[in-house]
Amino acid sequence: EPLWIRPDAPSRCTWQLGRPASESPHHHTAPAKSPKILPDILKKIGDTPMVRINKIGKKFGLKCELLAKCEFFNAGGSVKDRISLRMIEDAERDGTLKPGDTIIEPTSGNTGIGLALAAAVRGYRCIIVMPEKMSSEKVDVLRALGAEIVRTPTNARFDSPESHVGVAWRLKNEIPNSHILDQYRNASNPLAHYDTTADEILQQCDGKLDMLVASVGTGGTITGIARKLKEKCPGCRIIGVDPEGSILAEPEELNQTEQTTYEVEGIGYDFIPTVLDRTVVDKWFKSNDEEAFTFARMLIAQEGLLCGGSAGSTVAVAVKAAQELQEGQRCVVILPDSVRNYMTKFLSDRWMLQKGFLKEEDLTEKKPWWWHLRVQELGLSAPLTVLPTITCGHTIEILREKGFDQAPVVDEAGVILGMVTLGNMLSSLLAGKVQPSDQVGKVIYKQFKQIRLTDTLGRLSHILEMDHFALVVHEQIQYHSTGKSSQRQMVFGVVTAIDLLNFVAAQERDQK
């Protein structure tokens, strides 16, 4: 057995438009009618409502009807409940999964919650491996369901041993009777949507819809739904939504950006999952974080739909894509998950301010006199920076000697690579993860907040409520011999709460 199987392995699926269902090699399930009293909570997966979006479509000038398939009504709160249950049931049916076995899954959280929910009911041990950027709410729900959680670096490539995929496979090879159901490759993922989600949409719309818009992560949702719609409703256009920084969209030119990270969760990847059939997507749109969270908040405030950030991405694209539809036509959007997962993220004004998705003037509360002053007023001194090749031991000596707790790590040209902190280095040394002679590049981390000289002290204040420091950066445009230009970030300084307090105190003292 291989040590790991690539999540982007070539698909062996034989589905073709027009091929009889009787030739399918898979076990198919028909939607079942729910009894009045459910035998367990797993029976509350599927049969989610279709809700008309009344205000947002009109606000953006849509002539067509805009409908939302509300997947956050599933038992675990997301569309991923469907595939989690289906993968477990299919693994039980073919004898792969037996009582007492362990389920391991690399996930952005929602599939993990679905699997942990099913594992709690069915009696399996469950280990979820997820990147650090995923919300604390997801972690809390997983723990409450009895799952064990392993976190991995957000910026690790999918084929790196440190990625959530790599760590999951390492655990599988170490733990007896453990299984990775593997949402990236498992046919049960798109089949769950082909058999149930798509049929529900067709039934709820009486077979009449002209466009379907869905955000894409593993691709199982859009693949399964689109294949069924292509068979039953061939005139329906399928629109895929991919965040900026991901590479799922086609044509490839759409993916060209210097951005590699994004805040919206559960969609987009740096590889093409095996289950994603991009041939059934008629057109791709890219979405960005700001519009995703703005539209998610709009869905909550104006439509009462308590959905997550990827739902915002989907609707932001839908109001663009559906401009081509006329009166009497219908566009369906998939709202994948609930706001429950993001209470401390985009639902929080403070978080939105820190990330730059909300401006101070958007909030009406009274601010102190210094709130709208610029960061450049602080008069920061030149920063202490270190090269990635310097040793951890030497870096600790320098920081202690100069009285700093942290320093930016830059390359020879001064471009920011990340940050090192005294606390992080000492804990890594004590844990045996690094040696004093190791290069400081081994303990770089990139989960820090950046701020510009033109940003306000109010925004800085919000950042420092949650973080010990902020890195002050400025952009530099560099022209190359080819005539092309590129933008790079340079370090201007490091600012802490002490710097802000000293500035405010000094100004008030001078005024007296």
Rank of each mutant, 00 (worst) to 15 (best):
V504F: 12
K512F: 09
Q302I: 05
M490D: 15
V410A: 11
L501K: 06
I272W: 05
S485Y: 10
L501H: 09
Y445W: 02
G393Y: 05
P408F: 05
Y262S: 02
K433Y: 09
K283E: 12
Y269M: 02
F357D: 02
M425G: 09
G441M: 10
Q487K: 13
Q478W: 11
F357N: 06
Q329R: 14
K359F: 08
F357S: 02
G308W: 05
K345L: 02
R509H: 14
L430S: 12
G379Y: 14
L335G: 02
L426Q: 07
E291M: 15
E252T: 13
E401M: 07
E361H: 06
Q447L: 11
I451T: 04
E291V: 12
A296Q: 04
A249P: 07
V281I: 04
E290Y: 11
A505W: 02
T274S: 07
G458L: 02
Q450S: 12
M419C: 13
M419I: 11
D277I: 07
D242F: 05
T395V: 11
V281M: 13
D282C: 11
D289G: 06
T385L: 10
V440Q: 02
E252W: 09
T261V: 05
S246P: 13
Q489C: 14
Q354Y: 02
M419D: 12
E365W: 12
G414Y: 09
F295I: 08
Y269F: 05
Q450C: 14
K366R: 06
T364H: 10
M352W: 02
Q259P: 14
E291G: 02
A413H: 02
V264C: 08
D289L: 02
V264W: 02
K433A: 11
G483V: 12
T257D: 09
R297Q: 06
E253C: 07
R459E: 07
Q302K: 02
E412I: 13
L471F: 12
N424V: 12
E361A: 06
L500A: 13
H468S: 14
Q326S: 14
V434W: 02
Q376F: 08
H480P: 09
Q447K: 10
L387H: 05
E327F: 08
G266L: 06
E360N: 10
T389H: 14
D242G: 04
N424M: 10
I390C: 09
W284Q: 02
G356D: 04
E252K: 11
S427Y: 11
K402N: 11
A311E: 04
D242C: 02
S381F: 11
A470T: 12
L422C: 13
G403L: 02
H474R: 04
V333H: 02
I477P: 02
V495S: 13
Q406N: 08
Y269D: 02
V280L: 14
I267T: 08
G483D: 14
F404Y: 08
L399P: 04
F285K: 02
K283R: 06
L363A: 02
V504W: 15
A249M: 11
G308V: 02
Q326C: 08
V319L: 10
Q476P: 13
D411S: 11
E303T: 10
L378V: 02
P336I: 06
K433G: 08
E465V: 15
Q323P: 02
S427M: 02
A382L: 14
P383R: 07
F285H: 15
L457G: 05
M419K: 12
T344Y: 05
T260W: 12
T496M: 13
G423A: 06
D405L: 04
V420Y: 12
S437P: 05
L306W: 02
T261L: 06
T421H: 13
F295A: 02
G268H: 06
F295W: 12
L335F: 09
T391A: 06
V409L: 05
V333L: 14
F404C: 06
E360G: 12
W284L: 02
G328V: 08
F492P: 12
P383S: 13
T279F: 09
L387D: 10
K366G: 09
T260G: 15
A382D: 02
T274D: 04
S461C: 14
W351Q: 02
T456W: 14
Q450D: 14
G312F: 02
L384E: 02
I451P: 13
K446P: 09
Y269K: 04
H394A: 02
Y262D: 02
N341A: 06
D362K: 14
A321M: 09
M419A: 12
A497N: 11
D277V: 04
V275K: 02
C392F: 12
V420D: 02
Q507R: 13
F503P: 12
L429G: 12
A301V: 12
T260L: 02
S461V: 13
A292I: 02
Q302D: 12
L335Q: 13
D270M: 02
